[in-house]
Amino acid sequence: MSERLGVRKTYKLVVNGAFPRSESGRSYEVRDAAGALLANAAQASRKDLRDAVRAARAAQPGWWGASAYNRGQVLYRVAEMAEARREELADQVVAAEGVERAHATATVERAIDRIVWFAGWTDKIAQVYGGTNPVAGPYFNFSIPTPSGVVGVVAPAEDSLLGLVETVMAPICAGNAVVVLASETRPIPAVLLGEMAATADLPAGVLNVLTGRLAELAPVLADHEDVDGLDLAGAGEMRADLAARGAGSIKRVLADDPRDPDAAALRRIRAFLETTTVWHTIGQ
């Protein structure tokens, strides 16, 4: 009896809820920690990035317009999808990062629990960061946190799953839409997360995942004037340059990376929140 031949998977981009190859037709070799070929990942172009930003912009009002409760349910659903595919995720973390299986499993479990943690924030952000202001006068004055809009994320290069979850889920749970540039050398967990999100009722365009060359894509993302915020967690030596480019359209730029994960995550949530304050008269 001959051994069964496996069916291999092509890893593609995630743009507007669909899974295109790069419009450029290019791909690049992704190798595992031992140097063996893992996949020919799609090498996104500037046009793919443009499409992703357009999709994110179109999707963001609907995502923010859904109730906070509904957004929490959807993110929790992402965690459910991830839990169901945890073996696959662990396989890819082992392959990408070269860690022991037990370590990879723990990383995956931690990542899923973090998605659950973010899911719980959607309907609490306004309660923690918003409030009423006792102005001196007959006015009802309150401040509500609102999302910045479209956030570009350069995902951490090494921490291919957990780092991705932290950088992507924070702006999304605050009501933003995201275009993430996956780790260049370890992109596959990002593509998997994109697939899970697409089957978790996350509206198309809220999470767009691009794989490819950071040096080519990140400056275009940082320069794009219809991007409102940048998380440069995985930008490495490009960080200063990208942060400066963000000034072109007054982007909110998050360039540092605190150690405490909760503090870092809350910083990420706050980084892409605006505050709107309303004054209303009070009188007979």
């Binding site: 409760y69 943690w117 719980g120 924030w121 609490k124 923690v128 809350l266």
Partner: peptide, 18 residues
């Protein structure tokens, strides 16, 4: 169901509740 969902989210965020 919504009440359980909402307070589930607080269980690991009590330090932020004021």
């Amino acid at each position: 169901a919504a009440h359980f969902f909402y307070y589930a989210g607080w269980a690991d965020k009590l330090e932020h509740a004021g």
